[in-house]
Design a protein around this nucleic acid. Structure first.
Lengths: 212, 212
DNA sequence: TAGATTGTTAATCGATTAACAATC
DNA sequence: TAGATTGTTAATCGATTAACAATC
């Protein structure tokens, strides 16, 4: 029924959401597509096209009501759903993720953390006691986790993913270089490749410095 | 002279580089655009178009020499340049970045780390002693840093960025939600928005679960 | 009502894909 | 030489931008 929304629009939704949150916090109660486009560094046309993928949230001659639009986009993103997620890996990156993000307002609830390294097991992170990775299977079977955050190196993810998949986990936030979606095509995988980002920065710096 | 390379191609370069590195490590010495496209989850046409933005690296009837192509892409990305960078923020995220990434093979060299929190100053990270943020100015003036990695919250970045900009820093790897490029348009900013990524995952999970 | 700004259709632009001649 | 596969041009597809009628 509803036409497919392009990934490019989807990737822009969190930005809209962030900017609208900011506007709301600043007490702004309405905004035009032109103004919103300015802050988003986009065109007014694009803003209106994007929003109209999901419905007519604006009012002609007036603009968009900030609080309402923010709430609608939150609902579109599904931030109210709160998926139960586990974190695999309590190393530096895992700890940063666990302590840095406010999962509850981003559609998730972190319910458990697992780690292989004995030295890290038992410590508390965000009120959660880090468990041994030997307990993963038991935990997943006794709770209704549907998402896994993977902050382990590629070589550790490779053997782990089969177990997670077998236990029914289909959604992954993946910081490793292991290509989950290639092995299991019926998964939803959001990759964060920090080193790719850094290489892109490197390219752009060099490009910027080049004499025209 | 050279036509502008689109951001979409640039963003794919690190992936090519990663896959080629892997192939080389596996002892593969040549690869066709068709095979490379398979592993990259792209079309052979796209691979050939992408590579031909930079030059004819292949050989008709044979394919692309893996080691050579990898090296060329590394050179295009400028991974051999090694920009001097400083890290601002030695909290969980800063520590993760500092210890997790092999900067030297990604075009950078991390030369100093700064932090406001007294409890964190003095600790060693990747062989670098964390300094007080009071020393930033002095350090930048006496060394030839050109890039800053920002793992501080938005509210800390806002006042800091003016100082960094005034000291001549134009390149930023930015984990905060402060929009550097909007304030200073002659900068190169690569943003990593972890919460955006998580929201996108949330949307895609919900979308995936919907009955068609 | 007049002015403003949306929703939406049409036009443009650019990226991806297809096709095939060149050539190793 | 014949087979394979690139480099490159042309065709297609989709995303962005422009334009304007609808309407608050």
């Amino acid at each position: 029924m509803s036409k497919e929304i392009s990934m490019q629009v989807i990737k822009r939704l969190p930005r809209y959401y962030r900017f609208l949150t900011e506007l709301e916090n600043n007490g702004v109660d309405k905004i035009s597509s032109t103004k919103l486009a300015e802050t988003m560094n986009a065109t007014a046309s694009q803003v209106r096209q994007d929003l109209n993928c999901f419905g007519g949230f604006g009012q002609q001659g007036y603009g968009y009501p900030v609080a309402n639009l923010r709430e609608e986009i939150g609902r579109i993103l599904g931030l109210d759903v709160r998926h139960r997620a586990i974190l695999l890996g309590a190393g530096n990156l895992g700890r940063a993720i666990a302590t840095h993000l406010n999962f509850e307002s981003l559609g998730f609830q972190l319910t458990a953390i697992f780690e292989k390294d004995q030295k890290l097991i038992g410590q508390m992170l965000r009120g959660i006691k880090v468990m041994s990775d030997a307990q993963i299977e038991e935990y997943i079977q006794s709770s209704d986790v549907d998402t896994a955050f993977l902050t382990l190196p590629k070589d550790s993810v490779e053997p782990l993913i089969d177990k997670l998949y077998a236990l029914g986990i289909r959604n992954y936030w993946n910081f490793s270089h292991f290509d989950i979606a290639r092995k299991y095509s019926d998964t939803v995988v959001e990759n964060v490749h920090l080193s790719d980002s850094l290489m892109t920065l490197c390219y752009r710096i060099n490009e910027n410095k080049k004499p025209e």
